[in-house]
Design a protein around this nucleic acid. Structure first.
Lengths: 208, 208
DNA sequence: GACTGTGAAGCCATTCACAGCT
DNA sequence: AGCTGTGAATGGCTTCACAGTC
């Protein structure tokens, strides 16, 4: 196959497959079928095969996939064959939680700076990170080849921070503020909106 | 219209429209067009009209929508005409951040209990909440009509917590652990997976 | 003239079903 | 016999374009 129009949903699932393959690999399992993966992550086997087919032919008919090989392929596809440096803007509760989150490091994501504009927070330590004044943002981004910025500030400041991150040179933004960000198309944005998620939940509960 | 098969994406957008309408309402704006909303939240005006049309005819041709009226309708649709009680399981960094998050209360979501199984955390205060032992979960859920459970524990414990939340009687779960949960179909689940989001970001950055 | 509500068209994603390989 | 890879069919969501209303 190796076509070009790849569904966004396929990428999300690939990330989940990848994590699942890692768990199989750690258990010492060497071969896996699309049906096994499907079962493990809650999708159909046809979906798994289709998703993988966008990127090549990784399996062997009659046998399945080699776990280690497929794991390496998925990591490569997702851009995880090298590590990524990130900055976190906002040293409140959410920013602190993100700094402490182990899952990032396990997948090759490293936080290299935490910023705030609140003078009472600057200089304080969060985990191993010292909170820096926001004016140092550009410098840290440049010196550490930071490509990802995480926005963990209140909605009112999110647009300013986004503009600033873009100017500093990040290529992607993970936004936790409940606002639509206005930034150039070439910058990739993903928003994690907690109340939207809760409200989809309440809608679905109420119609039961 | 008022058909039945409503896209999940429509509900997510409705939540965003609702928040945007609230901001217009606070600014004293009384009338709004689908094009205005579209512009404000980053979608097309046809999309806005289609989304709203699933639930009724709320506008006036040639004029637009009454902000307050449409806001009330969206809130009602999302199930926000009354408040919701929630429990948080996991009093680590993420659990603490969620307890401190103001955005929940603003939309009518109230946390009525925070739980952990770590004896060193039990009894400690997080914001105004005292961390309770996990054995009290069922009791608190029952006594407070809790319908939503938030899972903020490490992946390894997530399935156990989910099973326990379901047994305690919650109707929906917001899951922050990077695992697929195995629970009955009638329980609504939304997963917020941070590394999946980051990996979709890195995929898109790398292919630029 | 302005803007909504909605069938129809177009596009995208998932599922089916089977040929092809081991 | 078992399992992958994929064209074809299906289903779902978004965009178009315009009739209907103010």
């Amino acid at each position: 196959m190796k076509g070009f129009k790849i569904p966004e949903a396929t990428i999300s699932r690939l990330s989940v497959y990848s994590r699942y393959l890692e768990s199989l690999y750690r258990k010492g399992i060497t071969t896996v079928s699309s049906a096994d993966i499907a079962q493990g992550v809650g999708v159909t086997s046809a979906q798994v095969r289709k998703d993988l087919a966008y990127f090549g032919e990784f399996g062997t008919r009659g046998v399945g996939y080699n776990v280690k090989e497929l794991l390496d392929h998925t990591l490569k596809i997702l851009g995880l064959n090298n590590t990524w440096n990130m900055v976190v803007v906002g040293a409140g509760n959410l920013g602190s939680a993100l700094c402490a989150y182990r899952g990032f490091r396990e997948r090759g994501f490293y936080i290299v700076g935490v910023f705030d504009n609140d003078l009472t927070k600057i200089g304080k330590k969060i985990n191993e990170y010292e909170v820096l004044p926001i004016d140092h943002l550009e410098e840290v981004v440049r010196e550490n080849n930071v490509e990802i910025g995480i926005i963990a500030v209140p909605a009112a400041y999110a647009q300013d921070v986004a503009t600033r991150l873009v100017k500093a040179g990040v290529k992607g933004i993970l936004n936790f503020a409940p606002t639509v960000l206005n930034i150039p198309d070439k910058i990739i944005v993903r928003s994690v909106d907690l109340t939207v998620n809760l409200e989809v939940l309440t809608f679905n509960i109420r119609r039961d």
